[in-house]
Design a protein around this nucleic acid. Structure first.
Length: 291
DNA sequence: AATGGAATCAACCGCGTGGCT
DNA sequence: TAGCCACGCGGTTGATTCCAT
């Protein structure tokens, strides 16, 4: 018995995505938009299951994603939100629109857990255990309320746009808000390609490599899925040129989206340290305001 | 320079949920 | 109302990279 596989396992490719596959996927999504993932492998010729396509898009190719080091501010937010929400990474990611839940989860497991572990080791009474004792249902309730509030605000357009539901790029990110979402995807791919080209330049001989800056388009046309990424060709030079900009932007990132009350509160480190016990009360107080 | 362990992170897996018929 | 389907989520795995010896 058991649940049937999400897709036919035979002939489905697994493992890391290649730049060619990325391009095919992004090109398709540019034309059709995200969603209907079931149809993506069929329509693109990708030998991937629908789930894998969706994951690749949401965790890597989706525009507006920032990769690389987490800032101290982001770190603090994650720590506070994890204490408040538990391992509800998607909910936490909704507060950090440029980060994916997968990224946050990995960062938590690899960095923050240890970091906190050291701190907790020094202290007798951990704030985390205090939260656990408060009960997970409260956290869940709070998140659900937040989600509901977000949806309501979005529907009424009285607040900032919801960051989770439509993956809108924060407007202060200037050029990306103006260019289409696809432009941002090309930046992600360009970054990937740069990395990939650096790696492959040693391994692949010149005659077999079709992914150089000069003959990138030619390389594309050798793909089994040719014809699906013509749009990418037109923006390829822009994408390549944007690699440096992208890296530069990563360094410069410090500005945040307009802060809600909760976000302000979360970032107020001093307040959080001094008033741990009031967290839920405050949060639930906000809930009362909502209704 | 070689090697083995640790760290990192992309990707997979299985389950829960909500929408549709 | 029940069943099916597609999607989203959190936990886990495994390949790759980094680093110390």
């Amino acid at each position: 018995m058991g649940r049937p596989p999400c897709c036919d396992k035979i002939g489905v490719k697994k493992g890391p995505w290649t730049p060619e596959e990325d391009i095919v996927l992004v090109s398709y999504i540019q034309q059709h938009g995200p969603g209907n993932w079931r149809a993506v492998p069929t329509n693109t010729g990708l030998l991937r299951c629908s789930k894998s396509c969706r994951l690749r898009w949401t965790n890597y190719l989706r525009p507006g994603i920032r990769r690389g080091n987490f800032t101290e501010q982001e770190e603090k937010m994650i720590i506070h939100l994890q204490a408040l929400l538990g391992n509800r990474w998607a909910a936490i990611a909704s507060y950090l629109p440029e980060r994916t839940d997968n990224d946050i989860k990995n960062y938590w497991n690899t960095h923050l857990k240890k970091k906190l572990g050291k701190i907790e080791g020094g202290k007798g009474d951990s704030s985390e255990s205090k939260w656990i004792s408060k009960g997970q249902w409260e956290r869940r309730l709070q998140t659900d309320i937040h989600t509901a509030k977000q949806a309501l605000c979005e529907a009424l357009s009285i607040d900032k746009p919801a960051v989770e539901s439509n993956k809108t790029i924060p407007t202060q990110r200037g050029e990306e808000a103006q260019t289409t979402t696809y432009a941002s995807s090309t930046q992600n791919i360009a970054r990937l390609l740069k990395k990939w080209m650096n790696k492959s330049s040693e391994a692949v001989s010149s005659d077999s490599s079709s992914f150089t800056n000069n003959n990138f388009s030619a390389g594309l046309s050798s793909s089994p899925s040719e014809g699906t990424f013509h749009s990418f060709n037109s923006s390829n030079s822009e994408a390549s040129a944007s690699v440096e900009m992208e890296m530069d932007r990563e360094v410069k990132f410090e500005t945040q989206m307009p802060l809600t009350f909760l976000e302000k509160w979360l970032l107020d480190d001093a307040a959080a340290q001094g008033q741990d016990g009031d967290l839920l009360d405050m949060a639930l107080g906000e809930t009362a305001d909502l209704f």
